[in-house]
Design a protein around this nucleic acid. Structure first.
Length: 845
RNA sequence: GGGCGCUUAGCUCAGUUGGGAGAGCACCAGCUCGACAAGCUGGGGGUCACUGGUUCGAGCCCAGUAGCGCCCACCA
């Protein structure tokens, strides 16, 4: 008594880790600078050292692994640079949070001890994402893992800072910056996001000094009036022109404010008179520079009112100060109106706090001269974006580039190579000689060090073998959200310090959103953990699904795509089992086709290989995934393997075609293809380094046309069988030789005389017969009548359509001849079919 | 205020140079057949957002409209 036969199932959880280990052991990802193969390098966008793999990482790294694996198999010496980023703010925040759980503040520890704790944290938890990348199947060069705070990397960062300072690009300035009160640090323009907020727009009367009246200003930040140093009006504004040059008195403070004219003021807005607070508004800051006005800082870096705001307000929060100012103004009868006002307000991307613009002493990098060659690089095509439109976005930003505030008031990061002693300032990697020098406590913006990633990871400024051999890199793959933050800055720094563009192609991929269209984020609870998906269906399925989703636009996460990947994995696996069972082999070299089916599949595989290479060249990975799916599923499995089972194809060709398909699919689904390869007799070595030439064979148009006829016929017969309710077990055999299929169906006798022609016109076109056997089912005349009526209606509709087209003289005259001929052919064919169907229907009545 | 993108089946999305609209999931019907029930076969389902234009012919090209999304700019 034997139970049902059990298929050997593909178990990703068992299979995948095994191959990850095998690839690592074989050094698949390890680059050899002395190799004579052409280099192909990608620098991974370094994930945050404390981070975990999210969907965006999974997609981005799948894309990179596809590119790397495909080029490795194509004979390149591939180097996928591996590493993590110290991610100053994010990492510091994570560690601070952990310390807070123990009731410790970083100030309690002091800087040195705190930084030591961060390093401890990094050693303990820093490798998690690297392990996750291995689980995803990524063949990075793990042995050369880099970190943006490695000694060599730090040296590169300091070298760059010193060099840029020497050229006069980096300097220290007192300037209005985006102050993040939550972080206690300045942040750059790119780390600020606008949010809509409804505030109250209040109108405040400022009395004129000569007692002749008042000027009314409008503001949403009444507490900033304490720092006003002028009132501005538009010089063309008739209402106020006479006030220019006169003086107003700042209420509550008593300061004299010059009234001046400036084109920036919009007469239409508010009252048309603008209070000028140079220390707390970027526009006011500019106006103040133009008119040489002093700045009075009333909000401090601690986020509270300063002594300069006056005793009554000092140490309050700005919100408290606003209330008190309003109360005091009301008391003095100086409030002239209040209305709700909705506008955009800057918030910190980092801490979420409302950004407080304030004047602060910071280090800035002038980007204008760095930008010029980086603009030319894209304009002249040495750096190409895919899709190309992102190049325009890059250029638009670069052409309007502004100074970059690079200093951060944090503890974790690259401390500035700047020393002070009294009034002296020294910039250099080592402290200068002499006593009393103190190092600037600030650190650099994380993106400053990230900007050096493609060459600092290769040992620059040393001329290492890796740098000589693998720089510049070929491709940079990322989502669009860091084009400015990172991509643009890498191009600038790469050109400045290596005289070469750091990469030639920038592949911009989709941003994966939550299934409901919201942003995927842990805090919103909309995140999807890729490791869960791997657990569910395996890394291959996840990789495939993500690639299918990665068309050029933003896309919602769809688990169905991962299911589709799982289907393909299963299909491929079972195809291997069947081919092995039928005696198929790998590595047999060119196989002589033994049948129409063989010729057909060889041609279809050649087509897929060729189109796949094109998709890869154009970074169209979603199309590549779709192509692989269809050639494997629809062509190889649905048709070719069915023909193999029917004895219409040869095991030799089945093995050869499978070898090519496994190689084609391997970069997308490395695990199942590697496992399948290992099961195929004759297969040697790892599929991951399978470099057998995959130049596409010749297409066989004749075989494709004949096979199309067979497919059409078989599909028609299956449809007929199903509509007639005949048993699906009824055999359906094909003999493709020499030119067409002869179909034998033992139920065909049930079809009325004459119907067979309409059923399989392709087959009977040159007189071949259908083999017949005993009828198994009686046909219900009612059902049959209805079916014939439907088919008659369809034929008539087709006929009418073709006749209408041919009735259009312009069509006959101007359309290509083959299309016109096709319509003429249809008129004949459907005319005959209509007549035949009508006759049969009449016979049934 | 400027720029970019999107709108195709119930859902998520493909759709090459303009020549009879596709996939996965979902749905209906039938199938445990010696690769595969994580499966197979057949089927139903679409005003390609809307309006106009170009063309013999438009999902595709052009103009406009509406809705949604993103980026940049940052009139207090």
């Amino acid at each position: 008594m034997s139970g049902p036969r059990r298929a050997e199932r593909f178990e990703p959880a068992e299979v995948e880790p095994r191959w990850t280990a095998a690839w690592e052991e074989a050094g698949v990802g390890h680059a050899d600078p002395s190799s004579d193969r052409p280099p192909y390098t990608i620098a991974i966008p370094p994930p945050n050292v404390t981070g975990a793999l999210h969907i965006g990482h999974a997609l981005n790294n799948t894309i990179q692994d596809v590119l790397i694996r495909a080029h490795r198999m194509a004979g390149f010496e591939t180097f996928w640079i591996c590493g993590t980023d110290h991610a100053g703010i994010a990492t510091q925040a994570v560690v601070e949070k952990a310390l807070a759980a123990e009731g410790i503040r970083r100030e309690d520890l002091g800087r040195e001890e705190f930084v030591r704790r961060v390093w401890e944290w990094k050693e303990e938890y820093g490798g998690r994402i690297i392990d996750q990348l291995k689980r995803l199947g990524c063949t990075l060069d793990y042995a050369r893992e880099r970190f943006t705070m490695d000694d060599a990397y730090v040296a590169a960062v300091l070298e760059v800072f010193v060099a840029l300072h020497a050229k006069g690009y980096i300097s220290r300035d007192r300037y209005i910056v985006n102050w993040d009160p939550g972080l206690g640090s300045a942040i750059s323009d790119l780390e600020v996001e606008d949010r809509e907020v409804t505030d109250t727009l209040v109108r405040i009367a400022y009395p004129l000094a000569d007692g002749s009246g008042e000027v009314v200003v409008a503001t949403v930040r009444p507490e900033t009036m304490l720092g006003d140093t002028a009132v501005a009006v538009n010089p063309g504004d008739e209402r106020y022109r006479h006030l220019i040059g006169r003086t107003a008195i700042l209420p509550l403070v008593g300061r004299e404010l010059p009234i001046l004219g400036d084109e920036h003021v919009d007469p239409e807005f508010g009252t048309g008179a603008l209070k000028i607070t140079p220390a707390h508004d970027p526009n006011d800051f500019e106006i103040a520079r133009r008119h040489d006005l002093p700045a009075v800082g009333v909000i401090g870096e601690d986020g509270r009112m300063t002594p300069e705001a006056g005793k009554r307000y000092a140490a309050l929060t700005p919100a408290e100060a606003a209330d008190r100012v309003m109360a005091d103004l009301r008391e003095q009868g100086l409030v002239r109106g209040e209305e709700p006002y909705t506008h955009t307000v800057p918030f910190s991307h980092r801490s979420g706090a409302r950004v407080e613009p304030l004047v602060s002493l910071q280090w800035f990098c002038d980007m204008s001269r760095l930008a010029a060659p980086a603009i030319a690089a894209v304009e002249e095509g040495r750096v190409r974006f895919h899709p190309a439109k992102w190049g325009d976005v890059y250029l638009a930003w670069m052409r309007e580039i502004r100074p970059w505030c690079i200093s951060r008031q944090l503890w974790w990061g690259h401390q500035l190579p700047v020393w002070y002693r009294g009034e002296e300032t020294y910039v250099g990697r080592e402290a200068p000689d002499g006593d009393g020098w103190e190092r600037d406590p600030d650190v650099l913006d994380t993106w400053f060090s990230s900007a050096l990633w493609p060459f600092a990871t290769l040992g620059w400024p040393e001329r290492t073998p890796e740098l000589e051999r693998f720089y510049p890199t070929q491709v940079l793959s990322t989502a669009r959200d860091i084009i400015f933050l990172w991509v643009a800055r890498m191009v600038m720094m790469g050109i400045e310090f290596t005289r070469e563009e750091p990469f030639a192609d920038v592949a911009i991929h989709a941003v994966v959103q939550a299934p409901d269209g919201r942003r995927m984020s842990k805090s919103l609870g909309t995140g999807i953990d890729p490791m869960d998906e791997i657990e569910r269906h395996g890394a291959d399925a996840l990789r495939f699904g993500l690639l299918m989703m990665s068309s050029t636009q933003d896309v919602r996460f769809s688990r169905e795509r991962i299911d589709q990947g799982r289907q393909l994995v299963t299909k491929l696996w079972n195809a291997v089992r069947l081919v092995v069972e039928r005696g198929g082999r790998a590595g047999a070299g060119p196989v002589e086709p033994a049948s129409l089916a063989d010729r057909w599949i060889a041609s279809r595989v050649a087509d897929a290989v060729e189109r796949g290479a094109g998709h890869l060249d154009r970074f169209e990975l979603a199309q590549l995934a779709d192509l692989v799916y269809h050639v494997v599923f629809d062509e190889y499995c649905d048709w070719y393997l069915e023909l193999l089972k029917a004895g219409e194809a040869s095991p030799e060709m089945a093995g050869a075609a499978l070898e090519q398909l496994l190689a084609l699919a391997h970069p997308l689904m490395p695990f199942v293809t590697e496992e399948g390869w290992s099961r195929l007799p004759g297969a040697t070595g790892l599929m991951a380094v399978h470099t057998a030439p995959r130049t596409p064979g010749p297409r066989d148009e004749a075989a494709e046309a004949e096979m199309a006829a067979v497919q059409e016929a078989v599909t028609a017969l299956r449809g007929y069988r199903s509509r007639r309710g005949l048993p699906p077990r009824a055999p359906l055999l094909m003999d493709p030789a020499p030119h067409l299929a002869v179909v034998a169906l033992d139920w065909v006798e049930a079809a009325p005389e004459g119907e067979r022609e309409g059923l399989v016109p392709t087959l009977l076109g040159d007189g071949r017969s259908i083999g017949v056997g005993p009828a198994r089912e009686a046909v219900d005349p009612e059902v049959e009548r209805a079916r014939l009526a439907d088919e008659l209606a369809a034929a008539e509709s087709e006929l009418a359509r073709a006749e209408a087209k041919l009735g259009n003289a312009a069509f006959v005259e101007r359309a290509p001849a083959h299309l016109v001929d096709a319509e003429r052919e249809k008129v004949e064919r459907y005319g005959a079919e209509r007549d035949s169907l009508a006759a049969r229907l009449a016979a049934l009545q």
